[in-house]
């Protein structure tokens, strides 16, 4: 909790994620698909704070994002897995500094996040939808991953630098 108090500004900035998700600015979207804001926020936090904080943050973020989405697939599994992976990388891997690395991590994270939703949708609606959903799902996955990867070097990188400088 002491660590959370120290990082309160960044922790509270997590509340912006559902707001920006609801806002979904058109000028930051392609074919109606926007970037994955949860990934952009969770990436720097996990790399800097370690596995437990990252997993808990992923869980809490998933709860809030589920609350503002229609019933169906849940975001919690995808975000918890990403929190664990990035937390492990931050703790035991080599230090992530390059913007290209951050972009690549965000791209892979967004793909994992999308796949977790896609699997759930396919499972829930398997009786009704076979081929028609595939094209749409691929398009959504690729556009979201690309936009997230493009924004990560700007947003996640800035957050990561602030966290390392103890500005938050």
């Amino acid at each position: 909790m002491a660590k959370l108090k120290r990082r309160s500004v960044f922790w509270l900035s997590g509340l912006l994620v559902p707001f920006v998700t609801l806002l979904s600015p058109k000028w930051l979207s392609l074919a109606g698909v926007g970037p994955c804001w949860a990934v952009l926020w969770l990436l720097p936090w996990s790399l800097e704070e370690g596995i437990i904080s990252a997993v808990i943050s992923g869980f809490f973020l998933g709860l809030i994002l589920d609350a503002i989405s229609i019933d169906g697939p849940t975001l919690i599994p995808g975000l918890v897995v990403l929190g664990f992976w990035w937390g492990w990388l931050g703790r035991y891997g080599s230090e992530i500094e390059g913007t290209l690395n951050l972009g690549l991590l965000a791209w892979l994270g967004s793909v994992i996040y999308s796949l977790s939703i896609w699997l759930q949708i396919s499972f829930i609606h398997s009786a009704f939808l076979n081929n028609p959903i595939s094209g749409w799902a691929w398009q959504t996955l690729l556009i979201q991953a690309t936009l997230t990867a493009v924004l990560a070097p700007l947003i996640s990188s800035w957050f990561l630098l602030r966290l390392r400088d103890r500005k938050f």
Partner: peptide
């Protein structure tokens, strides 16, 4: 007040 008509959710 909020539109998510693309992506995974259509709401």
């Amino acid at each position: 007040i909020s539109r998510r008509q693309g992506g995974w959710w259509h709401q």
